[in-house]
Amino acid sequence: MEDIKIGSLLSFGNYNWRVLDIQNNRALIITEEVIEERPYHNAYKDITWADCALRKYLNGEFYEKFNETDKARIIPVTNKNLDNQWYGSKGGVDTKDSIFLLSLEEVCTYFGDSLSKLHNPGKNQRYWFERKDKNNSKRIARLQGQEWGWWWWLRSPGRVNVKAVYIFGTDGNIGIQGNNILKGNIDEGRCRGGVRPALWLKLE
């Protein structure tokens, strides 16, 4: 494999991935684009990442799309699933995942440092991170094959456990209050939640 570094692009499986972190000959990568639309869960009920349908899909059907050589390079990890820092909704138990969504804390770390805004919200911040956050544009991702940005799920809970945190499509702002887990929004026509899988990859 070519020499890679944090921020570079690499091809793996049938997707292009952005390198977010490198540790001990392994890299944390996320798909460069929103690769598909899926709901966070298949029922409108209180849920956490550990039990949601999207986690089952990513670690099952999606994982099985990789060939055996690629699977051997995907490193299972234990993910912490913290409570929502603004609302206290439960993040659930730790999970062992081969493929996963980024958490609220991870997206505040790897797309520029926005942790101060997470842990010290302004008095008028109730639903969104600061719209003038200089890191917002770094989180914008296109829906695969399209020219415009699309919103995408994180694994963290929203203000209640029938919602999950997401990244707004047009400006990359963090919707910490969350979107509805089943529809993704109020639109009855389709499930519009964007998926950007992430994984730890063994480097060759």
Rank of each mutant, 00 (worst) to 15 (best):
S156H: 11
L10G: 03
Y63K: 11
D3P: 05
K5Y: 14
I176L: 10
A141F: 00
C52M: 07
L201W: 05
K90G: 00
A53K: 11
E33H: 05
D187F: 10
N59H: 04
L182F: 15
K163M: 04
D187N: 13
S11I: 02
R126D: 10
L102N: 08
K56F: 14
N24M: 11
W148F: 14
N161M: 07
E2V: 11
P76L: 06
K163I: 02
I176G: 09
E36I: 02
N59G: 09
K163W: 06
I167T: 06
K45M: 13
K183I: 01
D83G: 01
K71P: 14
I47M: 07
P157Q: 01
G158C: 06
V195R: 00
K138Y: 13
L199T: 04
Y63P: 12
G194Q: 12
A72F: 08
D51R: 01
N24G: 00
K45H: 15
N161H: 01
Q125D: 15
T109V: 09
S116M: 11
G91E: 06
W86D: 07
R73Y: 08
S98W: 06
N180L: 11
E64A: 10
T95M: 04
N16F: 04
P121F: 07
A164P: 15
I22F: 05
T170K: 10
E61A: 13
F12Q: 04
G169P: 04
N81G: 12
C108R: 05
H41C: 11
W150C: 05
P39H: 08
G158H: 05
I176S: 03
N84T: 03
L54F: 05
N84W: 08
T78M: 13
F168S: 06
L101C: 07
E2Q: 15
W151K: 01
S156K: 07
A50S: 13
G175W: 03
V77W: 02
H41K: 09
S8R: 09
K202N: 12
V34M: 00
K90D: 12
D51E: 11
A50Q: 14
T170G: 10
W128L: 10
R139Y: 01
E105N: 09
R18E: 00
I29Q: 08
V34G: 02
G189C: 09
Q177H: 14
D133S: 12
E188G: 09
N59Y: 13
M1Q: 12
Q23G: 00
R126E: 09
E68P: 11
I22A: 03
T170A: 11
K96W: 01
L199G: 05
V195G: 00
G60T: 06
G184V: 06
